[in-house]
Design a protein around this nucleic acid. Structure first.
Lengths: 196, 196
DNA sequence: CACTACCAAGCAAGCGCTTGGTTTGGCAAT
DNA sequence: ATTGCCAAACCAAGCGCTTGCTTGGTAGTG
């Protein structure tokens, strides 16, 4: 009955609808405080029927994360490819991750950051392997900027500071305010390459 | 049997020992995945005995947060008082919050950031009121720097970017590496006032 | 005696997940 | 067109376990 807003990059099969609903609930209440009965009710089925699509509750969480990493890794790849200079590539990367974080995959991204430790060690390893690909895209661009002398600090640390700045935005940024995503991207970019 | 490392600003009364143990467990496993039996075992008592000191499990969480905010608000106040120029005050603020975040109150600070929504609305409001005092210390200093033209961006937004950068550090910073807390503070300071 | 700190036992509720059976939609053979 | 069939999707019921918390009583201290 409910018509959840589906998350970008997830189809609207029964499985996909469950993933979108779960992502939203996980973000609102956290993984542990969300029951399989909640998720089932959100898509209008019985709680037991969930286990026809996923082998466990944790499997739902992992699937949300896997989908969102895959989708946004591809987004980042296109962001890098669409720019010529490393400086512009970095701007595109920041914009892309901001869009992922406060835009069309907001729920799933937040879940990935906050509910990491709800995964088993095995699933943590699998997810980490996917994240490594994602992170390499950042480090390549930052490494090039560092070689050019655009900033002095260690690229690894700059990436971590960027992760913090961008990852915190869901806690305060609102889409319908004066500050646009691109404005914010510029602001964050200037923390790395300096104000012009 | 266990001898938990106690958290700075918390005494070693029975209640204090419970708070330290709880903070550590909450950080490791999250609030929901930590049972009152876990906490009791960590200080060597029976689970029921906890409710002689706290009226509910959530009350433990709130108490951890209250203690850590009060302690670190005082720390920030002294940090500001110990510096003359706004620029040095900001450096002190960053250093102080970094110390709180990866140093002597690491567990409790991490819990405060990550387990916020496990509080009831009432307790959230109470905790928010305490945080407001804490935040005003930041905004005063950042406002002064902004008036001096040290940076152009909105002080509120700069504070949020700082919160993100500093709040993320427990996920990667290690005390026994080459990079010291003061080095990192300088690095973060330069994201606001520019590299010299 | 009063007070703090604790124990031993257990209750009621909620949890993830299983089970055995039913509905549904599409498709090939008649 | 009609039938027969199958797999996907789902329901209704409930099991076994864990959870936060309560209760009634006890040991030690001033």
């Amino acid at each position: 009955m409910p018509d959840n807003p589906s998350i970008h990059g997830i189809d609207d099969s029964p499985r996909g609808r469950l993933l979108s609903a779960a992502a939203q609930l996980f973000r609102e209440k956290g993984f542990d405080r969300t029951t399989v009965r909640d998720i089932a009710a959100a898509v209008g089925i019985q709680s037991g029927s969930i286990f026809h699509h996923f082998k466990s509750k944790e499997d739902i969480l992992y699937s949300v994360m896997e989908e969102v990493i895959r989708f946004n890794t591809e987004r980042l790849r296109q962001a890098v490819a669409a720019a010529d200079t490393p400086r512009e590539q970095l701007r595109h990367l920041i914009s892309a991750e901001l869009t992922a974080t406060v835009g069309d995959t907001r729920e799933a991204m937040t879940v990935m950051v906050q509910e990491w430790r709800c995964l088993s060690e095995d699933n943590q390893r699998r997810a980490l392997a996917l994240r490594d690909v994602y992170e390499r895209l950042w480090l390549d661009v930052l490494g090039r900027l560092h070689e050019q002398g655009v900033f002095r600090a260690d690229p690894f640390i700059i990436r971590r500071l960027l992760t913090g700045m961008i990852g915190w935005t869901p806690n305060w940024f609102s889409t319908n305010r004066r500050l646009s995503v691109d404005d914010l991207a510029t602001l964050i970019l200037e923390r790395v390459v300096g104000e012009p």
